[in-house]
């Protein structure tokens, strides 16, 4: 049971990050590597603020905007300076490593004793039997809020324009809008979500670690693909919801690999194989569907 709770906790925290990746990879069709830097950026900002005594919820919001700034910088480098999308992401990601260290002060900053959204007087009043669900109790509303906000936004005029950037840029031009600006907006929003996810993680794991961004992009991308593929047939489900579920499935895969526990060092290979199997299974279902539309 605790393992299951653990999977949901981790899955939901990283789901917020995966929602960000969904915007860049799926909607904008733009490979954004800023993520490996903006994820720990969110943690760094959040931990620094909490140590300074800022309200945990407020520090989440500020972390979100720190990510937004990072995304805007990537966007400006890409769109305005005309540097390729991959490279501009790499530039910002590399720079953020130092920025993160500067913000946090050192490479590993613990906040074990601090008040966080998961560790406060209000939650301490919960009855003992509910204590183990306290992280989920806080997380689920946050993730649902992110999901609804994103869903709503994607159905506004601006959101629809954003969705056509990756699909049909000419459409935006004919509507007298600049696709470049829409890209910057998308990157800002995406990295804001990624940083928010990093901030939530920092509060849950109670420390910031400079190297925690490594592999974030791969993890998020895997979650997005799993979600979209695995739940491709369920039409009623919105895409953000699929991404959230995908993130939980990804974490379940890692947990399964740990539980299989063949040899400690084969963990990654097992994770990779499980991932491949899941993708192949959903690929099978997908083929029929593609044929229908062709």
């Amino acid at each position: 049971m605790t393992i299951l709770i653990g999977i949901f906790e981790q899955g939901l925290i990283y789901a917020v990050m995966a929602l960000g990746l969904y915007i860049t990879y799926v909607i904008l069709d733009l490979p954004d590597l800023t993520v490996d830097g903006s994820f720990p950026l969110g943690s760094a900002v959040c931990v620094a603020l909490i140590i300074a005594g800022v309200n945990p919820v407020l520090s989440l919001i500020i972390s979100f905007f720190a990510g937004v700034v990072a995304g805007i910088i990537t966007g400006i480098i890409h769109v305005k300076l005309g540097i390729r999308d991959l490279i501009s992401g790499i530039i910002v990601m590399t720079g953020l490593y130092t920025i993160n260290l500067l913000i946090a002060g050192k490479s590993n900053v613990p906040i074990f004793e601090a008040t966080t959204i998961f560790n406060n007087d209000l939650l301490k009043q919960l009855p003992e039997s509910f204590k183990q669900y306290r992280v989920l109790l806080v997380l689920i509303p946050i993730v649902i809020l992110c999901k609804i906000a994103l869903n709503r936004y994607l159905h506004t005029k601006s959101g629809l324009l954003l969705r056509s950037v990756g699909d049909n840029q000419n459409l935006i031009t004919t509507m007298a809008k600049d696709p470049g600006n829409m890209k910057i907006l998308g990157l800002a929003l995406a990295n804001g979500l990624v940083a928010l996810s990093g901030a939530i993680l920092a509060q849950q794991q109670r420390f910031f670690e400079a190297s925690q961004g490594t592999g974030t992009m791969v993890m998020g991308l895997a979650s997005v693909i799993i979600g979209i593929r695995l739940f491709a047939k369920i039409k009623l489900m919105s895409f953000p919801m699929k991404v959230i579920l995908g993130s939980i499935v990804y974490k379940a895969i890692v947990a399964a690999a740990i539980a299989l526990g063949l040899s400690a060092n084969s963990l990654k290979l097992i994770t990779a194989i499980l991932l491949l199997i899941i993708l192949l299974i959903s690929e099978h279902g997908k083929k029929e569907k593609v044929q229908q539309y062709d």
């Binding site: 049971m1 393992i3 592999g215 060092n265 963990l267």
Partner: peptide, 24 residues
């Protein structure tokens, strides 16, 4: 003994710890 190695990845280290706690 249940020995697990996180291969230097923070997210995995966290899941390993949670799995251990889950197995009591």
């Amino acid at each position: 003994i249940d020995y697990q190695n996180a291969a230097a990845e923070m997210a995995v280290a966290s899941q390993i710890a949670e799995t251990f706690v889950g197995k009591d």
